[in-house]
Write a protein that binds this DNA or RNA. Structure first.
Lengths: 215, 215
DNA sequence: TAGATTGTTAATCGATTAACAATC
DNA sequence: TAGATTGTTAATCGATTAACAATC
């Protein structure tokens, strides 16, 4: 609505959770304020970048004082959904799905997993850490009736595109994608990919290269 | 050694696994060659970027012909460790560690997990999917004797810095870090972070913002 | 040979850093 | 008020895109 507001670049968005982690640590240690200069030294980035990044969200500081740590963390929490109540379902009750149900990082960020879905008749009807495992045929109805916001994809890749189409029609707003399938982001669906295979390949490249450098 | 060789930018390195995924799919479908133009349409990037990226590794194509898909995938496999045999250990036999032992993405990329380490006396002495769970006190000796390359960190954050110091001294070359602790990359250790909490925060931001945009 | 398409050089665009006026 | 430190504007740097000569 405000024409002056520029779109926040993706790189900036991706740096914010890292600031948040550092500021949370400082808060825990009892510190109440910090300047961009001091934070930049701790984090190994420039003070300019911190100020520039924060200014995309309107700026969190005060001239001559710096940043009030509690205030900044609260602002980031509002912007980055740490205080919102998102409802999520996990598609695929395999090893990874199992690991994510119990993941504290999700729970702390107020994303509550309300159901898991799987094709295996062994799993359907059971519950994992108190979360029921339901049949894939119940997915559409459940998603609509419970106003689910987020779908966490940990299913085999051949089934992904069909499942995603169905979930989009049921009003899912965001996909947390752990499969190797590329999902298209469109206007009313957000996608966050966690490509573990890409990540391990990158690590392998770095290791191979590091060895070369040292020779 | 070759002075002309420029260091490959991080952004380029991170795009390579994605090219690899697409080319592997094409290969599976029976296609043998593709031009940068055709690939760019499939992937939603510019043809210039593909050619520029590939040229950092010396170029994989041929004028007038394009890219031989099998050749390019093989080159990427060599560069990105898909054909190398890395030995890995997992520190922390919790849910996530458990999920990663069985993860096909790792197994396909020839990273073999040779042991897991944990503090829990219930787990020590057992084995998960054929991989033994050992005591943390055995970690240093085991790592040295077995020439372990990669440590996968899925342990509680308070123990991370101590464990990392020990592993560095034992000659670990790369860390695949799933904890929220920031690891410093130095000259002879590579680090690849998978910050799941950052990822879910980013998704939350995108969802919150998408709603705003549509209003 | 003619057409196609690369690898590379040059131009553009966007992101990072530096500088400083505004102000707490 | 004087010192500190922000938010913002301008300068620099690096990454992306465009153009094209080289060549299969």
């Amino acid at each position: 609505l405000d024409k002056k507001e520029k779109k926040v670049p993706e790189v900036v968005i991706r740096r914010m959770p890292r600031y948040y982690r550092y500021l949370k640590e400082l808060l825990k240690s009892g510190q109440t304020r910090i300047s961009s200069g001091a934070l930049s030294k701790k984090m190994g980035v420039t003070a300019s970048q911190i100020r520039q990044d924060f200014s995309y969200f309107g700026g969190f500081g005060q001239q001559g004082y710096g940043y009030n740590i509690e205030y900044v963390t609260e602002e980031i929490e509002t912007l980055f959904g740490v205080v919102s109540e998102f409802k999520a379902i996990i598609i695929g009750a395999g090893n990874l799905g199992h690991a994510l149900v119990n993941y504290q990082g999700i729970i702390n960020r107020r994303v509550s997993i309300v159901a898991m879905f799987d094709v295996s008749t062994d799993k359907i009807g059971t519950s994992i850490s108190g979360v029921p495992v339901l049949s894939m045929s119940e997915m559409d109805r459940f998603t609509r009736e419970n106003c689910v916001d987020i779908a966490i994809l940990t299913l085999p890749k051949d089934d992904v595109s069909d499942v995603v189409d169905r979930l989009k029609r049921c009003g899912i707003k965001g996909f947390w994608n752990f499969t190797s399938v590329e999902l298209e982001t469109d206007e009313d669906v957000s996608v966050e990919n966690v490509h573990l295979t890409d990540s391990i390949m990158t690590l392998a490249y770095k290791i191979n290269n590091q060895r070369k450098d040292n020779q």
